[in-house]
């Protein structure tokens, strides 16, 4: 029996997307091991750790993506830049 991943139907964009999230999680894990972080309070209504803020940033970006795609005809290429800025803002001040 040969083992292939053909059925997963990888494409370059989804590989970049999933790879980025995967690498971010690994980087966050290393960062946490090297300099452990504490829970703190930012502009979000709950105290959060960096991991929480990453999750909140990504999840809210998903909703932004759905709203962008579902309700507007705006250019899709602007969106990654906005999402990147938003996640950085949440990570820094959230």
């Amino acid at each position: 029996m040969t083992f292939t991943l053909k059925w997963m139907e990888w494409t370059l964009p989804t590989a970049i997307f999933c790879g980025t999230i995967f690498l971010t999680v690994i980087a966050m894990t290393i960062w946490q091991t090297v300099s452990p972080s504490m829970e703190r309070r930012g502009f979000l209504p709950i105290p959060t750790t960096p991991g929480d803020r990453l999750f909140i940033g990504i999840l809210s970006s998903c909703y932004l993506f759905l709203a962008w795609v579902g309700f507007t005809q705006w250019n899709l290429w602007v969106l990654p830049a906005i999402i990147l800025c938003w996640i950085l803002v949440v990570m820094r001040w959230g």
């Binding site: 053909k6 059925w7 997963m8 139907e9 990888w10 494409t11 964009p13 989804t14 997307f17 999933c18």
Partner: peptide
């Protein structure tokens, strides 16, 4: 792995394997 597959499928029109 199934979730990654779903993400891959969501941006393609799948007619059959490959």
């Amino acid at each position: 792995i199934p979730l990654l597959t779903v993400i891959n499928y969501s941006v393609q029109d799948i007619f059959g394997p490959g």
